[in-house]
Amino acid sequence: MPEIVGVVERLWRYPVKSMGGELLDSVEVEDRGLVGDRLYAVRDGAGKLGSGKNTRRFRRMDGLLRLGARLGARIDGPELFDPLGRPVPDPDTFLRAYLEQQDVALAREDGVSHFDELPVSVLTTATLDWMARAVPSAVVDERRFRPNVLLRTPPGTPPFAEDGWLGREARVRGGARLAFVRASARCAMAGAAQPGLPHAPEILKTIAQERGNELGALATVSRPGRLRVGDALSLA
C-alpha cells in the first residue's frame, strides 16, 4: 500500500546555477531533472562554472545568489534580474561588470553537468520548521536550501523524515517517479545573503553540528512525468 508522506507545497526551478529561482505551478520532469533547472550557468574563460564554492568543475563567484533568473516560456535563454529585481537587458555585459570579471558569460549546459550532485532536491516543512527553531536568530526560509520541491508534511511529522526515504521510490499523479538516493550536503550558500535574507553563518554551523552538514534529500528521476503544486507524494 503506497504511503502518502506529504503534498507538494511549492515547486522551484533555478534556470541559472547559483542564482535565485522561479516558483512554478507545475513542471515537466525528465531524466535530467526538472525541465530547465540549472540549464544555464555563468562560465569563465577556463570553462569553470560560477558557484558558491571552488572545485574541479566550479569556481566561486560571490554575488550570484543576489541575482534572479526566470525561464518561463523562453527558448532563447533565461531572463536575468539584478539585486533590486530589475530585468537585465544584456546578461553577459551585466555579468562582466557586476562580477568585475571580463572572461565570464552565460552558457547553456553541454558536456559538463551544472548539478552539484543529483538532479532533484526535496525538503519537508517539518525539517524547515526544525531549522527555524534551531536557529531563532536567523531568518530561515526555504530559499536558503534551494529545494526543487518543498513538501508539506502532516502535523506531527518529525524533522528529517527525508532520511527514511533513502532507497525508496516516490510517485505523484502526473506520472513522475523519483528515486531517493542520499541526503543533500550543505555548503556556505545556506547562510549566504540574498534578496530578503541577510547573511546568517549560524545556519550552516548548526547543520554541521546537528546534522553532519546534511539536510533534505536528493533524488534521481526513475520515470519522467509532471509535478504539480498540490500533488500528493507517495512512497512505494
Rank of each mutant, 00 (worst) to 15 (best):
T157N: 03
F160E: 05
R70M: 02
R13E: 02
V172K: 05
R168E: 14
E214T: 09
D92L: 09
A46L: 15
G156P: 11
E202T: 06
S222C: 11
A219G: 13
D62P: 06
R133L: 09
H114R: 14
E3P: 02
P198T: 05
P136T: 01
E169S: 14
L233W: 13
V8H: 10
G225W: 07
F115W: 15
D90R: 04
A190N: 08
Q209C: 08
P136H: 03
R171T: 15
L34R: 06
F81C: 03
L99H: 10
V88D: 05
C187L: 09
S26N: 06
S222F: 00
H199A: 09
P119Q: 12
E30G: 06
R96P: 10
A192N: 04
T124P: 05
A190H: 00
V7E: 11
D82F: 00
G212I: 14
A183C: 10
P224C: 05
A208D: 08
D141E: 05
L128C: 00
R228I: 08
R177Q: 15
V181T: 14
L150G: 07
G85I: 00
D129A: 13
A192Q: 01
L118M: 13
Y14K: 01
E202A: 14
G47S: 12
T153W: 11
R173W: 12
D163M: 08
K53D: 07
R60C: 14
G6V: 03
A183Q: 12
V120T: 09
R57T: 15
